[in-house]
Design a protein around this nucleic acid. Structure first.
Lengths: 206, 206
DNA sequence: GGGCTAACTGACGCATCAGTCAAACCTTTG
DNA sequence: CAAAGGTTTGACTGATGCGTCAGTTAGCCC
């Protein structure tokens, strides 16, 4: 067996990742406080002892799992965005990638909702949250600036303000989708955001 | 004696209300899952038995407390809005009343975050949530329609779309305030929303 | 083989809480 | 006053789940 010949576990640093992976998915589908160490262990096909071997306590697993999820989503996003050179297209691509369809992206949005609820109550979650949130806003801001350099976006828009508005609008729309507000579907959300981009960045200044 | 001569407890239906009042405040400050029956009892100056006397189980107390909070906030809002006749002013008043300053309104926003997180995970929360959310959007929509009748808002705006956007933007901004995103303060939030209203409903059509 | 260590296991101790219940308390009514 | 019925209490129970720890396995070097 020589640790992992083919796929499966390369045991070492892999175990940690497997635990975090299982954890964030459990958080997404059951909610932060409904995740049990035993559940994590079961999903990983291991014992509760092992989870505690890698992480001192439950809070550590949960907190790191949130980071893990957000980091991976961000990395995936960056990679895919880099391929699109036109800033307008890149922004539309970003919007598209962030639509909470079923599956992966929806689960990641569920993580954000948990994160917000938790950060509101427990200030110790805020620094990490804010770092991630800032990174997202910066992504948007840079695309706007890029677009202004490329001449595809209006020059009189304040990239900072646009980023603030677009992120807020995206979050708000995502909430409506995830909580099942009747009028709001994935399609409506896309339309809403695309319209916003057009109005703020493309349409002629009045 | 004529239940309750002056202030204090008019015991009967009052106890229920007191329990719900204590409960939603605890949810706001500690989070949905961190509220204990014993905490509720302590805040009310009573025993855990009494809480169970009025509510069959913990879930019932929590669910009803959410409703209680939202209902009261809505009633307060309605009363105050009714006094403002000009639709533009009324909308600005609504925005102002919804800014998550410290205290009451901030706590109510904390409730909403908890509600969203919970409704995402547990579908049984959605019907009630959606009813409340629809009520809020309707409030906005009606003010927009009123403004169009009064001639203070542009006639070409779709009230339904504006309500969708404004509620999403409000939620998104509130999240940023509550989680302490650096750029976002109460002032920034107000500015953001007021600008939006101006742009969508007041400024001349392009 | 014999020591050494890292990885892993799962049973157990202990704390926390929701919910129960019998008794105590109070209020009203006959 | 006494009985009845509504309300309140807080000790108790049972379930749940985190974290610990003694013990096991497996790789590795001499």
């Amino acid at each position: 067996m020589t640790t992992g010949t083919k796929a499966e576990p390369r045991s070492d640093e892999d175990r940690r990742a497997r635990i975090l992976d299982a954890t964030w998915q459990l958080i997404a589908e059951r909610g932060f406080h409904a995740v049990r160490i035993a559940d994590i262990a079961k999903v990983c096909g291991t014992s509760t002892g092992t989870v505690h071997y890698y992480f001192p306590g439950k809070n550590d697993v949960l907190a790191e799992a949130l980071k893990y999820c957000v980091d991976r989503a961000f990395a995936r996003q960056s990679t895919q965005l880099r391929a699109v050179h036109n800033a307008h297209e890149r922004l539309l691509k970003l919007i598209d990638m962030q639509l909470p369809r079923v599956g992966q992206v929806r689960d990641e949005w569920a993580i954000w909702l948990q994160y917000w609820a938790e950060a509101t109550i427990r200030p110790e979650f805020r620094p990490a949250h804010n770092e991630y949130y800032a990174r997202w806003q910066e992504t948007v801001r840079r695309i706007v600036q890029r677009g202004q350099r490329q001449g595809v976006f209006r020059a009189d828009a304040d990239p900072h303000v646009v980023a603030l508005r677009l992120t807020a609008l995206t979050d708000g729309a995502a909430i409506q989708v995830l909580t099942g507000v009747p009028g709001m579907t994935i399609g409506t959300m896309r339309e809403l955001l695309v319209d916003f981009v057009h109005q703020e960045l493309v349409a002629d200044a009045s």
